[in-house]
Simulated scan of single mutants.
Amino acid sequence: MLRSILLTIALSACAACLASWSIETDRSTPDKHGLFEIREEARRFIAQENAKRLEQWDVLEPNAKVLVPRCAVPLLAQWMPKSLGGSKASVTVICAAAVPNGVMKRWDVHVPVERKPARP
């Protein structure tokens, strides 16, 4: 009986933590690169692209399941190459050199984008 009560309390606490998570609060730490900063790099890239082109784009949210080590160099962004087979447009945010870790030396995260609705 006590075990089931403790399990219920633990699951409730876990659900409350997940409910409070958002991209806005997922910031970089010394060990991991936050999705907030990754999305912001995609936004900077798209702002530059929107200024150059007739098409206008909005940046969507990166996949919340992504977990990558902290980047040791400034992030780069580019359009995801069509050769990678993506069915929708997206921006690739690239880390050319991660902080030394046992998992990855470099990484890239795909951030989806969509066309802004046409203005009447």
Rank of each mutant, 00 (worst) to 15 (best):
K32W: 15
H110R: 15
R119V: 14
P30K: 11
L76K: 15
P112E: 05
D26A: 12
L67K: 05
T92Y: 02
T8N: 04
E41A: 06
V103E: 15
L75Y: 01
L54M: 15
K116Q: 11
A97M: 12
W57Y: 09
L35N: 01
P30V: 09
I46F: 09
W57C: 11
A19V: 05
A42L: 06
P30H: 07
T25N: 12
M80I: 00
V113C: 12
V109I: 10
S12N: 09
V109M: 04
R39Q: 09
V103L: 15
L18Y: 11
P62Y: 04
S12W: 01
V66P: 01
W21S: 10
R27C: 13
P30D: 06
P30E: 12
S90G: 06
M104Y: 15
S83H: 09
V93G: 11
E40S: 06
R115P: 05
G34C: 12
H33W: 15
V68I: 10
T8E: 14
L76I: 04
L60S: 07
L84K: 12
V93N: 10
P30A: 13
V93L: 05
G86F: 05
V99G: 07
R3E: 13
G34R: 02
M80A: 05
A118E: 07
P112W: 07
F45M: 04
P100T: 09
K116H: 04
H33R: 12
S87E: 10
R115I: 03
V59Y: 00
P74C: 03
D108F: 12
D31P: 01
A72G: 09
S83Y: 11
L7G: 10
R39C: 01
K52T: 08
L60C: 02
K82W: 01
L75N: 02
G102S: 06
V103M: 12
A13E: 14
Q78R: 09
E49H: 10
W79M: 02
V109E: 10
V111D: 00
N63Q: 04
M80T: 12
L67Q: 05
M104K: 13
A96F: 13
S4D: 09
A51V: 00
A72E: 02
V109D: 02
P81S: 07
Q48Y: 14
A51W: 08
R53T: 11
G86D: 02
V111G: 01
S90P: 05
A51F: 08
E49G: 03
R53H: 15
P100S: 06
V93F: 03
A72H: 07
S90K: 04
W79F: 00
E41K: 10
G102M: 03
S87P: 03
R106Q: 14
A13R: 14
